[in-house]
């Protein structure tokens, strides 16, 4: 179970083929293939229930897979879970901090779980508290910390043993915008330091900002893969025209919508039109007699990629 490391090709730290997880009769993850390479920031983008958490759990070896192959550092997590977990840091979607311990103790105890000696733990813990701006709370209980602080502490804790891969399951869900940006900065710094990061999110802006490469997951399957830019170029048009109809969109003639741009999606109160030039598309819409309450033109985003691939929005 040694690590093979050929210098020529970029090393894949995680490799999954046909990875499947079945709960009862339902597939939570249904035959997905992906590869996470050394040093990259890799994302799983998908709505609730897509199978992101289940995939993360299989990687950490805390959820035995139902079928397929999975290798982390060339090891099977169902057989070498402990060794693999020794080199990855996991931040769960739900808070798993130890409420019976102080901020600092959370780190100290965690270092022991990784088999570190007390002296190295103390040094590393002080470093991490500093890095995540928690030094002045070291002796405090965890419970009263703000959501953003708790999340930072969770990440600091997961880094105690300097893992090769950091796995974050929806790290910014429930955080206010400021706390979110603080966290994004911290993650980008870590990445620059050489840590491979795997992140799940249902925020397309987060995926777009952070990820070098990502897979889009929906209903247990991977529906697209690539860099954010590639995905947008491949699956969305250059610009997007959004037309708002507060009274509903059912009554609008399909023929009219087809004539406005390259493609369109009809949502409950909005029509989203993919096109080369949004202003021109808007002019065509008015020509066809449409009377939207408001409209806007923007560049395509991952949201549009998702919409295009699944016919739904990410937060539905």
């Amino acid at each position: 179970m040694g690590m093979t490391n050929s210098a020529s090709e970029p090393t894949a730290l995680i490799r999954a083929q046909g990875l499947t997880k079945v709960f009862g009769a339902r597939s939570a993850v249904d035959g997905i293939d992906f590869e996470v390479r050394d040093g990259e920031f890799f994302g799983f983008l998908g709505p609730n229930g897509a199978g992101k958490t289940t995939t993360m759990r299989m990687i950490a070896g805390v959820s035995p897979r139902s079928a397929g192959t999975l290798e982390i550092f060339d090891m099977d997590p169902d057989l070498h879970g402990s060794e693999i977990r020794g080199q990855i840091g996991v931040v769960h979607q739900q808070e798993t901090l130890d409420m019976e311990l102080t901020v600092l103790e959370n780190l100290l105890v965690f270092g022991r779980f990784f088999g570190m000696d007390r002296a190295s733990i103390a040094t590393r813990a002080a470093e991490l508290l500093e890095l995540f701006q928690l030094s002045d709370r070291a002796k405090d209980q965890v419970e009263p910390l703000s959501g953003g602080m708790k999340r930072r502490l969770s990440i600091a804790r997961s880094l105690i043993a300097s893992p090769r891969i950091l796995m974050l399951d929806e790290p910014t869900t429930g955080l206010d915008p400021q706390a979110r940006h603080l966290l994004w900065d911290a993650l980008q710094r870590l990445k620059r330091g050489g840590t491979t990061i795997v992140l799940t999110t249902h925020y397309m802006d987060e995926a777009e900002q952070l990820c070098d490469r990502l897979v889009v997951m929906d209903q247990a399957k991977i529906v697209a893969e690539g860099s954010p830019r590639q995905l947008i170029v491949e699956h969305a048009s250059r610009e997007v025209l959004e037309l708002r109809f507060p009274n509903g969109t059912e009554s609008i003639d399909t023929k009219v919508l087809e004539g406005i741009g390259d493609r369109y999606e009809r949502l409950a109160e909005r029509v989203i039109v993919g096109c080369e030039n949004g202003e021109a598309a808007h002019a065509r819409a008015l020509e066809h007699g449409l009377d939207p309450e408001s409209w806007l033109v923007r560049r395509s985003s991952l949201e549009d990629v998702f919409l295009r691939l699944t016919g739904r929005t990410l937060d539905e």
Partner: peptide, 13 residues
């Protein structure tokens, strides 16, 4: 507590 989930994400089995 979610303590056990945290513990099991480390080498501890």
């Amino acid at each position: 507590g979610k303590v056990y989930d945290a513990i099991l994400s480390t080498p501890v089995g």
